[in-house]
């Protein structure tokens, strides 16, 4: 294989692999901007991945599968919102609880309903006319499936909502100074319910993007911690969608690189190669996190104090 082809290959699969990171991390960005840390992303993703796969596998409809993932994510988000907003639970701990629930539940459902690893035919590649025909660039960017495009489209949409709409202003204020927002008649609870449920939906979609668009199988713990990296990406991206995009691409490219290293039989132990993105997470976080300030009310429950 020529070096050019290898580079194109790495870049193409890097773009593809950014998909789940993007959905999950953009969802998490909304939550954190409103002051809620959701550590249960990985669990929500696993349930979304299972629901998406199972419905697609049994009905043969990928669209229904995606819808199932959205519903499951929304229900998980609703539960998370209740625990966080109404019960004012410690977010770090309840998030881990939701993760473990998602992990265990997806495994249980897998054993009960499927039993063995099956495959589906995932969303097909969508060759975008004209753009997809550009040599090299077309192959890297414009010959992916619809869920990949959706993930990249989400970035400008999220940026727009957060920065140009009254809703974005409310989310920002609720995450920085909920007392101030409350005093102006903004419902802190309603905004946080919205962002947490949206986060759950996007986590569910992130999971489905693995099981019915990228890998097209469901396996136990198939995310292997991807959801946690998504949380880290939000810090890396300084709570901004474009920053999250940069982070997602960095990680997916490294991931793609290590996959290709295995394909090309470069003599590095597989375990070391697999570790690469995780080591990168820690290094990058250490370098970047002290740089920017997190939303002031992050992880703090809001109570009017009556």
């Amino acid at each position: 294989m020529t070096p050019e082809l290898v580079i194109i290959g790495i870049l193409t699969s890097g773009i593809r692999l950014a998909t789940p990171y993007l959905y999950a991390a953009i969802g998490e960005t909304f939550g954190q901007r409103s002051g809620v840390l959701n550590l249960g992303v990985d669990g929500q993703m696993l349930l979304g991945a299972f629901a998406g796969f199972y419905v697609a596998f049994t009905t043969g409809s990928l669209e229904l599968g995606l819808l199932a993932a959205i519903l499951v994510g929304a229900v998980m988000g609703l539960a998370m919102a209740f625990v966080t907003v109404n019960l004012q639970a410690e977010q770090g701990i309840s998030g881990i609880g939701f993760y473990l629930f998602g992990l265990g539940m997806s495994e249980l459902l897998f054993k009960m309903l499927l039993g063995t690893v099956e495959t589906v035919k995932g969303f097909p590649s969508l060759h975008i006319p004209f753009l997809g025909d550009i040599p090299v660039l077309g192959e890297i960017f414009f010959q992916h499936n619809v869920m990949v495009y959706g993930a990249f489209l989400l970035v400008p949409v999220a940026w727009f909502v957060l920065n140009k709409t009254t809703l974005g202003l409310k989310i920002h204020s609720v995450g920085e100074n909920p007392e101030a927002a409350d005093s102006l008649g903004v419902s802190v609870a309603r905004i946080r319910y919205f962002t947490i449920i949206l986060g759950g939906i996007l986590s569910g979609v992130a999971g489905a993007s693995l099981s019915i668009a990228l890998l097209n199988v469901f396996q136990q713990n198939m995310t292997s911690g991807l959801g946690f990296i998504a949380v880290a990406l939000v810090y890396f991206g300084a709570w901004r969608p474009w920053g999250v995009l940069a982070g997602a691409l960095l990680f997916s490219m490294v991931n793609s690189l290590q996959l290709w290293m295995q394909v090309l039989n470069i003599p590095i132990p597989t375990e070391i190669a697999i570790m690469l993105p995780y080591i990168l997470t820690i290094v990058v976080l250490v370098i970047t996190v002290s740089r920017v300030r997190s939303p002031s009310a992050l992880t703090k429950p809001f109570d009017r104090g009556e």
Binding site: T166, N177, E179
Partner: peptide
């Protein structure tokens, strides 16, 4: 007594917060 302002927003954004906008959902 403790000002109800969001420090990371501008004056105009703080004033607009929570009010309906003349452009619907856009600020």
């Amino acid at each position: 007594q403790h000002f109800m302002l969001v420090e990371t927003l501008t004056v105009a954004e703080n004033v607009a917060l929570g009010l309906p906008s003349s452009r619907g959902f856009l600020t």
